[in-house]
């Protein structure tokens, strides 16, 4: 009973703050609502007993992603009213599509049922929850059954990194940089030369 109550509380707040993300006028507010939505989602995971994912959500999404968003939004000078100009003209058709899609998905979800073979199929790769802790279970699966996917994720992140560097890093000529290794490896013999200078003459 209490569990259900708590679930509906968190779920409602999640949905409402998601709506606010889209509709609020101030972009900073949007990001803050986004953080709120993340927190509530994490709480929902906790309710399901998935504490590891809940923590991940808080650490990664709230701690890193959303804060980064906040920085970006605050640093970039984006004219949001200009961005919204198309909003009014496309609102009706957008709404229409949204509503139609929503209704269709509702209809299909209404027919949802869990067959026994589905439960069997779904629980096949996971160990019994009582045996292992949440984190350990994930770890066991991630590094055995799903090692391929894990490795591909690594590649995807690598590509993302390369991409970010390729698209943004600019090496400007004429900018002074400190290169520690060069500084350290400098020897006097290479750069200093002693010259005997006679009196009354220049170098």
């Amino acid at each position: 009973m209490i569990q259900a109550l708590v679930f509906y509380l968190f779920a409602t707040v999640t949905v409402l703050s998601a709506v606010m993300v889209v509709t609020s006028r101030n972009p900073v507010h949007s990001v803050l609502f986004l953080i709120l939505a993340f927190f509530n989602a994490a709480a929902l995971f906790l309710l399901m007993g998935a504490e590891f994912i809940a923590m991940m959500l808080v650490v990664v999404y709230v701690g890193a992603v959303a804060v980064l968003f906040l920085f970006v939004v605050m640093m970039l000078d984006i004219n949001f009213t200009a961005l919204r100009q198309g909003f009014q003209t496309y609102l009706p058709i957008g709404l229409l599509i949204g509503v139609v899609l929503f209704v269709e998905i509702l209809i299909s979800l209404g027919a949802w049922s869990i067959g026994p073979e589905m439960i069997a199929a779904a629980s096949a790769p996971t160990p019994a929850p009582a045996d292992v802790s949440n984190t350990k279970a994930i770890g066991k699966l991630l590094y055995t059954q799903y090692v391929l996917l894990f490795q591909i994720s690594g590649l995807i992140l690598l590509v993302a990194m390369i991409g970010a560097i390729v698209l943004t890093l600019r090496q400007r000529p004429g900018v002074l940089r400190q290169t520690i290794s060069e500084q350290v490896s400098r020897r006097p013999a290479d750069v200093v030369s002693l010259v005997d200078v006679n009196k009354g003459e220049g170098v």
Binding site: L149, I152, S153, I156, V159, V166
Partner: peptide, 24 residues
């Protein structure tokens, strides 16, 4: 596997997004 399918597509697409704008 559906996840492998998605992973493959993402790896490919992400690289292609960058390649498309390589002349930045």
């Amino acid at each position: 596997d559906l996840i492998a399918l998605y992973m493959g597509i993402e790896l490919q697409s992400l690289s292609l997004y960058v390649i498309a704008s390589i002349r930045r």
